[in-house]
């Protein structure tokens, strides 16, 4: 339930700019190799004209890896957010609309995931499933839906109580029909805002998992760059170029999504003020 309050659209523009920058990085990563400096035979080479951001512990060009990392972070961010938002929306709508025992049961499950310490559980899950791209997505999706579910539920509950839905029920419309045709479109605003915020969280979570070595080695991400910098002596080498850029990328890409999500949430809030506070 992050209440970020009113945000001017200028902030949203900043968010859009940051996200566009990340997408630009992803596009650039598809350029043929060698555009950004070749791998060197010397590890931990400082930034120079041939390697713009220097080289890492195995002589790879940091810039090239950084661009490639944007693919992983972005795709895991989007996929993880999709899975978690989908989960959260379905559970939220269902719980809010059905009410009663269903609501109670789903509420308990939601509580469980809200209360259980996410990071240790994530580590256990990631270690259990093993590191692979889809598993990282699943771990993030599985643990990041409860807040969405809660918000969607509250909204669905409200809509359920409105005279319009009561009327439809009275006419004898079937519940799944009402849920899909009338409840879902009305929670759309909040779902979208949650999705954008979830992308940002997923990017951070993926980075965290990769940082402690639970990432997918097939798809090196920014978090993994930090992992190898931390475990292969980049600090003692003073090789800041191996860990400052990926950290900036993680922060700014997640910031971009947060800013947009904040804007969307506040706009949504002001548009629904008349109905009452949704939290």
């Amino acid at each position: 339930m992050k209440r970020f309050g009113y945000s001017p659209t200028g902030v949203e523009w900043a968010g859009i700019a940051l996200i566009l920058a990340v997408f630009a990085m992803t596009l650039m990563s598809f350029l043929p190799g060698g555009c950004f400096g070749m791998p060197s035979s010397i590890p931990y080479l400082p930034p120079s004209s041939s390697n713009f951001l220097g080289t890492n512990d195995i002589g790879d060009d940091v810039l090239a890896i950084l661009l490639q990392g944007s693919r992983v972070s972005l795709s895991i961010g989007l996929l993880g957010a999709t899975v978690s938002t989908l989960f959260g929306t379905v559970i939220g709508v269902f719980a809010g609309f059905m009410g009663g025992t269903v609501d109670e049961a789903l509420g308990s499950i939601t509580d469980f995931f809200l209360v259980v310490p996410a990071l240790p559980l994530m580590i256990l899950l990631a270690a259990y499933l093993g590191p692979s791209f889809m598993n990282v997505v699943m771990v993030i999706g599985l643990l990041w839906w409860p807040t969405t579910a809660r918000m969607v539920r509250a909204r669905a509950r409200q809509i359920r109580g409105s005279p319009f839905i009561e009327g439809l029920m009275g006419v004898g419309a079937r519940k799944p029909y009402i849920m899909f045709r009338h409840v879902l479109p009305n929670v759309w605003g909040i779902v979208l805002a949650r999705f954008v915020l979830a992308v940002s969280s997923s990017i951070l979570l993926e980075a965290g998992l990769s940082f402690i070595g639970l990432g997918d080695p097939q798809n090196p991400s920014w978090g993994m760059m930090l992992h190898f910098a931390m475990t292969r002596g980049a600090l003692l080498h003073g090789a800041w170029w191996t860990f400052v850029p990926p950290g900036i990328c993680i922060s700014f890409s997640s910031l971009g999504f947060i800013l947009i999500g904040m804007g969307m949430e506040s706009r949504y809030r002001s548009s629904t003020k008349s109905i009452g506070d949704v939290s």
């Binding site: 512990d57 195995i58 093993g130 590191p131 070595g213 080695p217 097939q218 992992h227 190898f228 475990t231 292969r232």
Partner: peptide, 25 residues
Amino acid sequence: ALSMRLAELVKRDLENIRIRVQIIP
């Protein structure tokens, strides 16, 4: 970390002779 890095280098060498490689951590 050293072992993962080594696996990565071996993977590249094998990919150069067109063998598809998957690292299982």
